[in-house]
Design a protein around this nucleic acid. Structure first.
Lengths: 156, 156
DNA sequence: GTACAATAATTGAGAAGTCAGTTAATCATT
DNA sequence: AATGATTAACTGACTTCTCAATTATTGTAC
């Protein structure tokens, strides 16, 4: 379904504006796919994202700021997401020894197991990933990277 | 800033996965830009989106469902967004005469004025739109449209 | 026209996000 | 080592989102 159909309109101010709406719509579309996949595991997209980040650095822990820096949505309240993951025992947290302002956060065995389960389901669903060739996906990423350049205007 | 920098990682499962994270990150990035622009006008991105939709059909009113169909985030709670806009007197709402389940919603003069103001500010800020040529923006939209195709898998 | 299904909109309750302000620790300058 | 600035994490209050359940109305089949 093309974006004109998805938003039931042909009125776009410009190609750039149309692309912008398309990005936001596609992100929302992707998000709802991911959320519905994660639903039966009881984790939100943000929680899943954090677990993947922690697996990436495992067994080295990360501090909360390191995690925020790696998150898709930089405005997330990392503390609150951590609280949820601690309750579920998917992560551990302890005060930093070198810099006592920081906290160290590490994924637990249980957290790793959860990710493994989700990975397996994903492997089965592989074909439904994104309907793009590697080259197209690469091009898309390059365009998105370019789009965000030179955004320095009068209001920063 | 390339996506590798933005998320401080080089580990992507595939080009498709990287593109997916890039879309979500870019959407979040765009969103925070739009939100900060709208902040001084006291409307959220979703509220702004609805007002633009209503202006598009003005003076013909739309029912709540028509609006949802045109929204970027189809999961939004349209009723609640309308409530906010009614309080601010940017829209009017009345029960449908033909189908009494529906409500008719129309933008007010005040709502139109607000949009005009925002348009004017935007015109000044034009250069900071998206750093893409018309052709690039078109290509990006085409890739996003393609990406969403054929998403019919075993689960629905 | 009655019964049942489908649709449009709304509501309630709980979860999550947002944002400004606070605390605690460290850094930088003198 | 004392001062103030900066940084990391956290908290409270508030807003918004989410999702299932509900109400009101219309459509469909007999």
């Amino acid at each position: 379904m093309k974006i004109e159909e998805a938003l039931k309109t042909n009125k776009f101010k410009s190609d750039q504006h149309k692309a912008m709406l398309n990005i936001m719509f596609t992100a929302s579309w992707l998000r709802s796919k991911v959320v519905s996949k994660l639903k039966c595991y009881g984790v939100s997209q943000e929680q899943y994202n954090v677990l993947r980040i922690l697996r990436g650095s495992y067994p080295t822990p990360l501090c909360a700021k390191d995690i925020t820096d790696r998150m898709i949505d930089k405005n997330s309240n990392t503390t609150r997401i951590m609280d949820k993951l601690i309750t579920k025992e998917y992560i551990n947290k302890w005060r930093g020894e070198v810099d006592r302002r920081e906290v160290n956060i590490s994924i637990t065995e249980l957290g790793l197991e959860l990710l493994k389960e989700i990975d397996q389901e994903e492997a089965i669903d592989k074909p439904n990933y994104l309907n793009l060739s590697d080259a197209e996906a690469g091009l898309l990423s390059a365009l998105l990277d370019k789009l965000r350049e030179k955004s320095v205007t009068r209001e920063q």
